[in-house]
Design a binder for these strands. Structure first.
Length: 725
DNA sequence: CGCCGCAGGCTTTTT
DNA sequence: GCCTGCGGCG
């Protein structure tokens, strides 16, 4: 593609950003304003006009998906020249730097990356060794503390307990955890960043090397950077590199994970002469949707200020549905999706968004009942699945026998009679003689102390591993995976299992074999001294893969509001809009956190291109308990003229609901009320007369005397009654 | 050792 | 309502 043509296709603000002269640039890019486009064009512009070798450009994103999209789009603009461009996630880039300079970061050459689950296991182990249980401090809290400290760039030594016993405990666990991870030579996600940063600060030659190389740093989603990531950009930029930061303070929704919106402002302060460009023209949503988004986000006080506008026409009104309960809500939403499909919309054009994963269940049930294909995002990704990690652990242990974490993971998976008792002995023997678990388990001196049964079990396990190892030599990656899965007994174990999930586990294991077969061994890992298997294993944690192993299908999309960021859909349904749920009850009392929730709402609204439906339920079962809720405050922040409110057809009148709650929303549509003695129609029972009503709210039951089937007791919110003449 | 049953717990999660 | 962790029993 011709760059001039490409530049002409940009709007003035986009063009200003893309063609900005030498210096730092901050692009405040509103939702749907073409920020990826700007980033990609900037890379092309630098190459084409400024004659910057793409090799000297580093583009940083947060997700692998965004990184590969950027690479692909830069490729279409640049052609061959795109090769050499370093585009990746913060973690991917730092990981690569650590691999390259492992010894300078005090890491073994084939150090391992711990994912969340691995980390938690290690925290548990550390706490167990300290004599602490989950009751002293929940394991999750301890892991959380460690991660947020690292995100802030803090090592345990610089932390102060501030006289708080709980905090002291957290610091002690962090300290012990750190000691253990260094001993094992493993790094968690936060450590990848922090360790890289520390390496750059202490190893001047390495820093100089990268500073000389990178003339341009482009950072996507700048509002999501945490303290360490910001410091990384700063130190890498040094005095000479130009930083092109793109972000939207209104879409900062990861504050709870250490992201600092303040970095956006800090950028203009810490870097000299920053040129700020605002992208405010939105190319995604209708005027109505945009107006709603603007109105909601305007309720936040901490903003850099931006107002989205569009050339698009107003479009349909936003619908607000108020259901009696979650069942009602789900039925309505799925009904609407079905109707839109009947109007020739593809399933994948609709997305149901929610604040918390638990809300997907009922929607799923209804979609299944309606035979609508759907896909739930989130949950475990491919390489996070237990069976996959088990198989990888066999490969790891076969490749490096002294990998204790892998040993612990699979020594008794599938069950082979090596229990806690035996493992205690193995660990103790290892500790006493400074051996790895593998060395300990296979040592003759330990065997001598063991009972026959335990000894046999350990010998059998060792035999399996040796078998796998023997077949590693010269085998393709997929053969190696195949052997690990088969010889370990994992496949046989799941095939024999009657568990409902076992079948999909076997499928996943097969998927692993094909994933191994299509793995591309990269030059950097060769240069870092890894063999193909090590390279494959190293990348598994970092690129955990997609939520589903299946190929993309034309499905209704279900996901949390968080994971919807960056995506767009023709029709968006945001459910569970109740105070306490969204905004989350945990954020409601804290103004700063409430603003983050509001930004989440803003993100949700701006995902919609054409249609937006917001729904809440007056009562909802949460954790098995009935809760009555007030509609989300965010609903009231949307101007009434943009909204059409919908109530279910059947509304129980005051006549037989003893204590109706005051309606919070002004209802524009007339309610259809049923009176005692009225003729009604039911989908399957036909005509009848409403005889009596009992109970209240969600539990309201109606007694209807049907002409054909006689009297029936119906749940008011389930039976779709219509008034009959 | 390993299975089963019960009690308690619980946002969001790019990497 | 569903997953996790622990305690008891076969």
């Amino acid at each position: 593609m011709n760059l001039a043509d490409a530049l002409m296709s940009l709007n003035p603000a986009q063009r200003e950003a893309v063609t900005a002269p030498a210096g730092h640039v901050l692009v405040l890019a509103g939702a749907g304003s073409g920020k990826t486009r700007v980033l990609v064009h900037r890379i092309a512009y630098l190459a084409d006009v400024e004659k910057v070798d793409p090799w000297r450009v580093l583009a940083v994103t947060f997700t692998n998906k965004a990184a590969s999209e950027m690479r692909a789009r830069a490729g279409t603009l640049l052609g061959q020249a795109e090769r050499g461009l370093w585009a990746g996630t913060f973690h991917g880039i730092c990981h690569r730097m650590l691999r390259q300079h492992a010894p300078h970061a005090q890491l073994p050459r084939n150090f391992q990356v711990l994912d969340q689950d691995d980390q938690l296991r290690l925290v548990k182990r550390v706490m167990r060794e300290m004599g602490l249980s989950d009751e002293d401090l929940p394991h999750r809290d301890a892991a959380w503390f460690i991660n947020s400290s690292k995100d802030e760039g803090r090592r345990p030594e610089v932390l102060d307990a501030q006289g708080q016993p709980r905090r002291r405990l957290q610091i002690e666990i962090y300290q012990a955890y750190e000691k253990l991870t260094r001993l094992l030579g493993v790094v968690d996600f936060a450590e990848i960043l922090l360790r890289t940063q520390e390496m750059l600060l202490t190893q001047r030659e390495i820093l100089g090397h990268y500073q000389r190389r990178f003339a341009h740093l482009l950072v996507d989603e700048f509002q999501d950077t945490n303290a360490v990531q910001y410091a990384f950009v700063r130190v890498l930029a040094g005095e000479h590199a130009q930083v092109f930061a793109v972000g939207d303070d209104d879409q900062s929704i990861y504050g709870w994970r250490g992201a600092k919106v303040e970095n956006v402002q800090a950028f203009t302060r810490d870097f000299p002469k920053v040129r700020t460009v605002r992208l405010e023209q939105n190319y995604r949503s209708t005027g109505t949707i945009l107006a709603a988004a603007n109105a909601v986000i305007a309720c936040n006080s901490e903003r850099l200020g931006k107002n989205l506008w569009t050339d698009d026409k107003a479009g349909a009104l936003i619908e607000i549905f108020s259901g009696y309960n979650e069942v009602d809500e789900a039925r309505y939403v799925v009904g609407r999706i079905k109707a839109s499909m009947e109007a020739d919309r593809r399933p994948s054009e609709s997305a149901v968004l929610y604040r918390s994963n638990a809300l997907s269940r009922l929607i799923e049930e209804n979609l299944i009942a309606q035979r609508i294909p759907y896909r739930v995002y989130g949950g475990l990704r491919f390489f996070e699945r237990a069976e996959i990690k088990d198989a990888l652990a066999y490969l790891r242990l076969a490749n490096s026998p002294n990998d204790d974490a892998s040993f612990e993971r699979i020594v008794n998976t599938p069950p082979r009679g090596i229990g806690e008792q035996t493992m205690q002995a193995v660990r103790q023997h290892a500790n006493a003689h400074s051996l790895s678990l593998w060395q300990s388990a296979t040592s003759a001196s330990l065997a001598a102390k063991m009972t026959g049964r335990a000894r046999n079990a350990l010998t059998a396990f060792a035999g399996i591993l040796q078998d796998i190892r023997a077949r590693l030599e010269g085998a393709t990656l997929s053969d190696a995976a195949e052997h690990a899965i088969t010889l370990s007994g994992l496949r046989a174990f799941y095939e024999a299992s009657s568990d409902s999930k076992a079948e999909s586990r076997v499928e996943n294991l097969d998927q692993l074999i094909s994933a191994a077969g299509s793995y591309v061994f990269n030059d950097e890992d060769v240069a870092a001294g890894l063999n193909e298997l090590e390279s494959f294993l190293a990348n598994a944690a970092l690129e955990a893969g997609d939520g589903e192993a299946d190929a993309w299908e034309d499905c209704v999309q279900l996901m949390t509001l968080h994971s919807a960021k960056g995506l767009e859909f023709a029709c968006v349904y945001i459910i569970g809009l109740e105070d306490g749920l969204f905004p989350s009850g945990r954020s409601i009392d804290d103004p700063a956190r409430l603003e983050e929730e509001r930004r989440l709402m803003y993100v949700g609204i701006t995902r919609a291109r054409q249609e937006l439906l917001l729904s809440f339920a007056e009562s909802r079962r949460i954790h098995g308990q009935e809760h009555f809720a007030v509609p989300s405050r965010f609903l009231k922040e949307i101007p009434a003229e943009l909204v059409r409110e919908i109530r279910p057809r059947l509304n129980v009148s005051r006549g037989f609901t003893p204590a109706p709650r005051a309606p919070r929303m002004q209802l524009e549509e007339p309610q259809t009320l049923f009176k005692l003695g009225q003729s009604v129609k039911h989908a399957s029972f036909g005509r009848g007369v409403l005889v009596s009503a009992m109970g209240s709210g969600e539990n309201t039951k109606l007694l209807v005397n049907f002409e054909t089937v006689g009297p029936k007791l119906l749940m008011a919110n389930v039976a779709k009654l219509e008034a009959a003449a």
